[in-house]
Computed example of a mutant assay.
Amino acid sequence: MKQWTHSSREEVSAQTIGQLINLSGRQRMLSQRIVLHVLLASYGDGAALMVAKDCLSTFAQTHADLVSGDGPLTGVFSEALRQLYFGARNADESIQRFIAQANQAVSCLESGMTDGREKTDALVVQGTPLLELLQEITLAYQQEMRSIETASLKRQSDIAERLGNISMQANIVALNARIAAARAGQFGREFAVITTVLADIMKEMDQLIHSVVNAHSDNEAPPRSSAPLPGRHIRADHAFQ
């Protein structure tokens, strides 16, 4: 099984992480169904054995998808997830061990071997710690989602701030142009019309920027600074002298 994929967090969409959260959450439910139905099967419930086999198959395939990123998923795409799955926590090994124990228990019960109850008891012992581990994995994906959303809002806020500074400089240039047109008298009338249109465009651009900034405020994004960028101060009364 592939243990590391090279997709970076920036390449992973929020929609994909939402799918990963749903899958990891479903793994918790499946693990408990596997333990419960293997236990029921150990008491002679044949239907429970079939349910346990189906759940185990889905559980094993989903874990492979989460780790290796087959298909549309991204696998282990961050250092935090890599440490969780393959680092000190070693979640991958624990989950693979649970899958192997569940398969052994199912095989023993299916074939009527005498140690089926022993294998079942060993599986039941693993149920609670595995559930805690799967909860930890789900929380890790949720943290990745929060990190991506925060980074996205930060990028949007930076773009809004840059556009705001560009708009400010453009307004200053338009003002200087109107001053120059006024000084030119009748020779600057056509130029004055152009500067008026430019001012209207800048006004519309400011309105769009304000709408973006307000949207960020609603989402508790970092506030946008109104200060101009360093080194870009322009004196309107000296620009065309």
Rank of each mutant, 00 (worst) to 15 (best):
M1Q: 14
E10K: 13
E11P: 05
G18C: 10
L20P: 07
Q27T: 12
M29L: 14
S31K: 04
S31E: 09
S31L: 11
R33H: 12
I34A: 09
L36I: 08
H37E: 11
S42L: 01
G44I: 02
D45G: 10
M50F: 07
M50P: 01
C55M: 12
L56N: 03
T58G: 09
F59Q: 03
A60N: 03
L66C: 03
V67G: 08
S68D: 10
V76M: 04
V76K: 03
E79Y: 05
E79R: 01
A80Y: 03
Y85A: 03
G87N: 00
N90L: 03
N90C: 01
D92Q: 09
D92Y: 06
E93W: 09
I95A: 04
F98G: 04
I99Y: 00
N103Q: 14
V106N: 08
C108M: 02
E110I: 11
S111V: 05
M113A: 10
D115P: 00
R117L: 05
V124H: 04
Q126P: 00
L133Y: 08
Q135W: 03
I137V: 06
L139R: 05
Q142G: 12
E144T: 08
E149W: 15
A151Q: 15
L153M: 13
L153A: 10
Q156A: 12
Q156F: 07
I159Q: 06
E161W: 13
N171Q: 13
I179L: 14
G185R: 11
A192Y: 07
T195P: 00
V197M: 08
A199H: 11
Q207L: 10
I209R: 01
S211K: 13
V213G: 01
V213E: 09
A215E: 07
H216G: 15
D218E: 15
P223T: 12
S226R: 03
A227H: 08
I234W: 13
A236S: 10
D237E: 12
F240Q: 04
